[in-house]
Amino acid sequence: MLTDFLSLLFWIKCFAKGAIPQKLPTSLVHLKCLDLCGFEFCFGREVDLLSALLLVTSSPNIETIKIEMEDDLTEAVSQAIMNLIDHQDYSYVTLDHLRVIEIYNFSNMKTRMDFVKLILAKSPMLKKVAIYLNEEIVDIHGRVKILEEMIQYPRASAKAEIVILNFCV
């Protein structure tokens, strides 16, 4: 547990400097629940996207992930960020213990969709993906489009249920 705490301190120090390593010096093996609500990650910013990915991929025994997204409407998102997950090598990642992921304030931005796609592909024990949509941004047509796309993603778990709900901001 002390190792996880020290690793998180290292991560916070790197985050403050704006330098995100590819991997943490040690895995967060004791971390069972990763709650990133209240930090409002903006997946239109490279540092936020890489930070979230670093924490998730460095936590091999994680069972639950909760993450709150920040509205990306004011961010100019570069093409490099839009394809960041596609261009990274996550072949080493396995989330063998992940059961539940909850994402709040979700929209159909490519980086957010790619994040869910990665989670679905790497989590053989996943049972529930709860997506809370930002209804100010996503209308009923956007909701259907998100669901249609997500149900086509490859899944490591045949039992993974995707639930789309409204998130009141």
Rank of each mutant, 00 (worst) to 15 (best):
L24G: 01
L28K: 09
R45Y: 15
G38A: 05
A16S: 13
L34W: 13
L24A: 05
F10H: 11
F10T: 11
S7P: 07
K32A: 05
L8Y: 15
V47P: 02
V29K: 11
V29R: 07
L9R: 14
L28F: 12
A16N: 11
L34F: 13
F41C: 02
W11F: 15
R45I: 14
F43Y: 10
C37K: 09
C37E: 01
L8C: 15
G44S: 08
C14M: 02
I12H: 05
F15L: 15
S27F: 13
L9K: 09
K23M: 01
K23W: 01
F41A: 03
H30V: 07
C14S: 07
S27I: 06
L24S: 04
P25H: 06
V47K: 09
L34E: 03
V47N: 05
C14D: 01
G44V: 14
K32V: 15
L31N: 04
L34K: 10
T26H: 08
C42Q: 02
C33R: 12
L34D: 07
A19N: 12
C42V: 12
L34P: 14
F10D: 03
C14T: 04
S7A: 15
G18I: 14
W11C: 10
C14Q: 03
T26A: 01
P21K: 00
G44H: 06
G44I: 15
I12W: 05
I12C: 02
L31M: 12
P25E: 04
G18L: 13
C33Q: 10
C42I: 09
K13Q: 06
L28Q: 02
E40I: 15
K23Y: 06
V29H: 08
A16Q: 13
G18Q: 09
S7N: 09
F41S: 01
S27W: 04
I12S: 04
C33K: 12
K17F: 12
V47T: 11
W11S: 06
G18Y: 12
P25A: 12
F15P: 11
K32H: 10
K23G: 00
T26E: 00
S7D: 02
C37S: 06
L36K: 06
F15M: 10
K32S: 07
Q22W: 01
F41Y: 14
L28C: 10
S7W: 08
E40M: 15
K13P: 00
L36I: 14
F15N: 12
A16M: 08
L31F: 10
L8P: 14
L28G: 03
S27H: 09
A16W: 07
C42R: 06
K13I: 05
Q22P: 02
E46H: 11
W11I: 15
L31R: 02
P21G: 04
P25F: 10
F39T: 10
V29W: 04
F43G: 01
A19D: 11
F43Q: 02
K17C: 05
P25T: 13
F41T: 07
L28S: 10
L9D: 03
E46A: 11
R45N: 13
C37D: 00
F15Y: 15
L28M: 09
G18R: 09
L24E: 00
I12M: 05
